[in-house]
Design a protein around this nucleic acid. Structure first.
Lengths: 236, 236
DNA sequence: CGCCTCATTGAACTCCGTCAAACCGTGTGG
DNA sequence: CCACACGGTTTGACGGAGTTCAATGAGGCG
């Protein structure tokens, strides 16, 4: 029998970025359907960098991380994936995964075969536009992240991270102020280019200031304003 | 009369990433043509973040920089643009520029109207595929850069930067070992998330080791192997 | 309870940023 | 032709933000 833990919440497809590629206008002969059956446990891989790619994916429940190999420095996190978000776009034409996607907790993922995406793009200009929009938005977001991580101080990075997750969590329709970070400190640190200890210290610092309530992996934003204006130097 | 300096070299269109969008199979009534006339002087802007966008661009001659605004920290460089490379893809459907593009020297840029790109994508699946490939490759590259800049040490970043430019310069058909960096140290430092002084010191250090020959903005790679294996700590 | 992993806290170190001065290359004017 | 000015670059000395090393604390699960 299947002893796998069941993901807590399923996201409504209505808010999913992949929706236009799932709801095909009419079924076509030989058009591969969306298979939504992919279940993952913590630290299971959805795909791995370097492998041939034949699908793109939307997260239905649970958090994942996207990593890229850095020559001489192992794999590093470039992005956390929340329910409703899409992953695998970078290889949509290269047909080869540039990143790995790894579950941070029990997850459910929808798989859209590339053949399906391509057919729908060719048949419906609106789908092609949607795909380009997803790609473009993802690129813009990654560029902003790149500039932010290389120019913000450690406290600013942690503050920005908390606000970013809160905002995206809220966009999914949940209450944005309180949420759970399913990843470990090690993974938060990796994604921010910091160390475990620095992240831990800064979270403690933010709590001492009354900006957040943190207990383990549960987080509540108490003062978003102060977090957003977090100064370069934490000591006050 | 036009006192503008003439760009030194024009790249052959054959190697340009935008080529499939310029060479339209057959002229269509009302299809906007590619206009290749954009000339820029050092520090002139091709476009600015936040502005409405109605074209994408390919660099024909000269270097540019792409910057994004970072809240509370001004504009920062996310990418240098070499001849034959494409810029503006992130806004192809958002219709609004997420980045600014600024000339680092006398430049010539080809402008492809979005209407043209969209028409060709709808009419020719191969063009749509090409656009998605450009977008995907750019995304993959930006993700790698993100992970590298947040996890590599200062010496490793400078070494990686030199090798990256050398490789891209070689891809354009020039001799890759020796090239000119038209940007100032300030701009190199900004793109790498470092300071002018650190960049200057590390270039001097690399020269002292015999890894590169640097005189002003002229660079020659002497020992690519050592640069690629540049240790986390420069001191030996 | 006992064991393990993850998280927190403390202390010492170090890479890199900051401040400051000297050094160039280039253009300008006498 | 040289003197001068000016922006960019290099080099030096110092300090601090963040890492590294180390020890303690807190959950989770058999």
């Amino acid at each position: 029998m299947d002893a796998r833990a069941k993901p807590q919440r399923l996201t409504a497809c209505s808010g999913c970025a992949m929706a236009p590629l799932c709801e095909a206008a009419e079924p076509q002969p030989g058009l591969p359907a969306v298979s939504c059956r992919v279940r993952l446990e913590r630290s299971e891989r959805l795909f791995t960098a370097g492998e041939p790619q034949d699908a793109i994916y939307a997260v239905r429940a649970g958090f994942l991380k996207a990593t890229v190999p850095v020559p001489g420095s192992g794999e590093h996190i470039v992005r956390f994936l929340l329910p409703g978000e899409v992953v695998g776009l970078e290889g949509i034409e290269a047909k080869r995964h540039a990143t790995s996607a790894i579950a941070l907790e029990a997850c459910e993922v929808c798989e859209v075969p590339l053949r399906r995406a391509q057919f729908l793009s060719d048949a419906y200009p609106a789908v092609a536009v949607h795909l380009r929009r997803l790609l473009g938005n993802q690129l813009a977001r990654t560029q902003s992240q790149l500039a932010a991580l290389t120019h913000l101080s450690a406290p600013q990075r942690v503050a920005a991270f908390l606000l970013d997750v809160a905002l995206r969590w809220e966009d999914r329709g949940y209450a944005g102020r309180a949420f759970r970070l399913p990843m470990e400190r090690r993974e938060i640190a990796d994604g921010l280019g910091l160390t475990i200890e620095t992240v831990s210290r800064l979270l403690a610092d933010f709590r001492a200031r009354g900006w957040v309530a943190v207990r383990g992996r549960e987080v509540e934003i108490l003062d978003a304003e102060s977090l957003a204006n977090c100064p370069r130097v934490a000591k006050a």
